[in-house]
Every structure is written in C-alpha cells, then in structure tokens.
C-alpha cells in the first residue's frame, strides 16, 4: 500500500479575522486536516507576493492567504490592496504553468470557524491529486 500524499500548506492568516476564525474552529472542536501551518500576520494587506513565492520556493505544496471580508478589515482597507496584488500574482503563476489550485485566497471572518475548516478541507482535497510541488521548489 502506498502512503497517501500529504501536502504541506503554508497559510498566512490575518490576526483579526482569519486567525480568530481559525481559533473559533478550535474552540468549537471542528476537526480538519493538519496539513496547514498557520503564520499569523497583522493584515492580509501585509502579505507581500515575495512571501508567497518564497513559500513555494521553500517547498510548500500549497499557499493560502486569508483575510477579512471586504469592508470588515480591522485596518479599514488592507484586504482591498491584498486582493489586487494577489489577483496579479495568481495570473502570473497561472501563466508560467503552476497549477492554479496550489494558490488560494479566502475571506474568513472571526465568526466563520466553519468556513475556515471547509477552506482547509477543500484545499487539502484539491492538492492531494497534484502531488508534491517541485516546479518552484529550491533544488526541486
């Protein structure tokens, strides 16, 4: 029996919404796959495209950026800048031939523990058939 591929995922979660939403999932004891290592950032607006490229470069099979819903940003509008920047990066990654499933953005509010678990479950399910990400991985 071959062991099922377990993707490694880096998730940039904003402190106020998505990290709090993930905390709520915990408080509510919602089970989800353990493939994601969260990195708390203050705002999705602080996630530089370099962070995402670097995560792939260091061997991530998938990268998630999650922030507050539009209009709910703790810092008023950081998520709007993030949305624009990430749309561009997503197009670029797609253009060079990386599987589009590998890079995801989501809006998860502090009240959306359920949504957070759904996002993670879906992401893991989508990544499993793709196998390891070697295209951008250093020495890959």
């Amino acid at each position: 029996m071959t062991e099922e591929f377990e993707p490694k995922i880096v998730a940039f979660l904003c402190k106020w919404c998505s990290s709090a939403g993930s905390d709520l999932a915990g408080v509510s004891r919602m089970e989800y796959p353990s493939n994601v290592i969260p990195i708390q950032v203050l705002c999705s607006g602080s996630v530089s495209p370099l962070y995402i490229l670097s995560a792939f470069n260091k061997g991530a099979d998938g990268v998630l950026v999650s922030g507050c819903h539009p209009g709910d940003c703790h810092y008023i509008k950081g998520n709007y800048y993030s949305r624009r920047r990430i749309a561009l990066l997503k197009e670029l990654l797609n253009f060079i031939g990386l599987e589009p499933e590998r890079f995801k953005m989501s809006w998860v509010s502090a009240a959306e523990g359920t949504k957070y678990t759904e996002v993670i479950k879906e992401f893991v399910d989508e990544l499993k058939p793709l196998g390891a990400q070697t295209k951008l991985r250093r020495n890959g």
Binding site: S19, S22, D23, L24, A25, G26, V27, R29, M30, E31, Y32, S34, P38, Q40, T117
Partner: peptide, 13 residues
C-alpha cells in the same frame, strides 16, 4: 505559539 485552538483541539490524531 498557538498549539491549542489551531492544533490540539482540531487534530485528534
């Protein structure tokens, strides 16, 4: 480091 809400409470294994 949050190993309760983001880890022990959601991963029974």
């Amino acid at each position: 480091a949050n190993i309760r809400e983001q880890c022990s409470w959601v991963h029974p294994n």
